[in-house]
């Protein structure tokens, strides 16, 4: 497994553990009313699990498994994939934690722009790898 896939998938696992923990806290709060402030984690819970976990895991597996170039020695435009890694994580943190920390709405907007940029960068990387296998 290439280094970038290891980073993407392990980071996804961290978001998964944190997102699941936040979800557990909110569900317990719903049942026994610990402190309603826990609901401020809601946006982070959704962002961490949908983008930080599911999307990032898919990126990691795709980077690893999609067809390679030059007899299997090259994954093509790797800088674009690294850019996607940095942008998606900046985006998840900004969009997920912005509302919890009471930051201006513009912070969440910047987070979403980073996530969109990550999607674009990853598409630039992956597009040429989606092709028929050599005969």
């Amino acid at each position: 497994m290439p280094r970038l896939s290891v980073l993407l998938i392990r980071t996804a696992l961290v978001y998964f553990a944190v997102g699941f923990t936040l979800g557990c806290l909110m569900l317990v709060e719903k049942a026994v009313r610990i402190d309603p402030v826990l609901w401020r984690f809601f946006d982070a819970h959704v962002e961490f699990l949908l983008v930080g976990w599911t999307v990032q895991l898919a990126m990691g597996v795709a980077f690893w498994m999609l067809p390679r170039f030059e007899g299997g020695t090259s994954r093509g435009n790797e800088p674009a994939a690294w850019t996607a890694f940095f942008l998606v994580n900046a985006g998840v943190l900004l969009a997920g934690l912005g509302s919890f920390l009471g930051l201006p709405q513009a912070v969440s907007l910047v987070g979403r722009l980073c996530e969109a940029g990550a999607a674009l960068a990853f598409a630039v990387h992956a597009w040429p790898r989606i092709r028929p296998s050599p005969a």
Binding site: G23, V28, A31
Partner: peptide, 12 residues
């Protein structure tokens, strides 16, 4: 509900 939350969390 609390038990369900803890079971899911521990599974994760």
């Amino acid at each position: 509900l609390v038990v369900s939350a803890l079971l899911k969390w521990s599974a994760g």
